[in-house]
């Protein structure tokens, strides 16, 4: 890259400090990069980089720890909320976040996320839902849409057999324990701005030792969906967002003395 050194140049867009200078391995059109950046910007803005610890999942974002300039743990598949619980309980001064895909969180790790949320563990979960297993090559996930063709649902997801896609925000928001649960998307600039705000709220909740927070981000997988990046963002709008409505599902209530 040619460096332009010009005294008249002012930097208006820089790499967040919470990012390392690695190039990501994600496919063209994948929105992991956007979501990573929103998390990194938030860490910078809240000035928490030096006490933040990420917990990486198993899935496409398994190598997330290479892209951030913060301490990281790499979790077994689905167990990130358990690792985060351990970390946060013994070192409550740390800011802990898990970054998990839909196979990781909604399938193999469902028990861990439900119980972490129900215990009200004071960490933050970024849940990236792209309706498919990406890393292993496009298999059906618990979040795969009805009729969606994947390598393990070649005739389309049959809801009689595989059940309906799991709506994690709705499921977790039934818990009595206070928490912050919001679903957002990153397929348009407007939605990206909203997502940033949601992620910031989730981290702020943790800084305030307030509650467990989970932000579900509707994401794309052009490679495994067999679509171009533009078609993929449209697919989020037309197929996913009607079934996975955006919005805040749960907010921490004012503290009630029991």
């Amino acid at each position: 890259m040619n460096e332009v050194k010009d005294s008249a140049t002012t930097i208006t867009f820089a790499r967040p400090q919470a990012f390392s200078d690695m190039v990501t391995h994600y496919c063209p059109g994948c929105t992991h990069g956007i979501i990573h950046r929103l998390v990194a910007e938030t860490i910078d803005e809240l000035n928490i980089r030096e006490r933040t610890v990420g917990v990486a999942p198993v899935g496409c974002s398994v190598l997330i720890y290479n892209y951030f300039n913060v301490d990281f743990l790499e979790s077994p598949h689905g167990r990130a909320p358990a690792l985060a619980t351990g970390l946060k309980r013994v070192s409550p001064e740390l800011i802990v976040f898990t970054y998990q895909g839909d196979g990781d969180l909604a399938s193999i790790g469902l028990s861990e996320i439900v119980h972490a949320a129900n215990r009200g563990e004071k960490f933050t979960t970024i849940f990236v839902n792209n309706a498919i297993y990406g890393m292993t090559g496009g298999q059906m996930a618990p979040t795969t849409m009805p009729g969606q063709v994947t390598s393990t649902s070649p005739y389309g997801r049959n809801v009689e057999e595989a059940g309906w896609p799991m709506r994690i925000c709705e499921l977790l928001s039934t818990l009595r324990t206070p928490g912050y649960i919001e679903r957002v998307a990153v397929h348009t600039p407007q939605n990206i701005v909203r997502t940033k705000k949601a992620i910031r709220t989730a981290f702020q909740n943790q800084i305030d030792r307030r509650c467990f927070s989970l932000i579900e981000v509707l994401s794309t997988c052009p490679t495994n969906w067999g679509l171009t990046p533009c078609e993929a963002t449209n697919w989020v709008q037309t197929n996913m967002s009607p079934y996975y409505p955006l919005g805040v599902f749960k907010k921490p209530e004012p503290r009630i003395e029991v």
Binding site: A82, L83, L87, V90, S111
Partner: peptide
């Protein structure tokens, strides 16, 4: 710190997270 976990699968992984801090778990 005392945590009753939801399963031994979770226990093992809570230990993993907690042990990474260098504290005795």
């Amino acid at each position: 710190v005392f945590v009753q976990a939801e399963s031994e699968v979770a226990v093992g992984n809570m230990l993993f997270g907690a042990a990474s801090t260098g504290k005795r778990v």
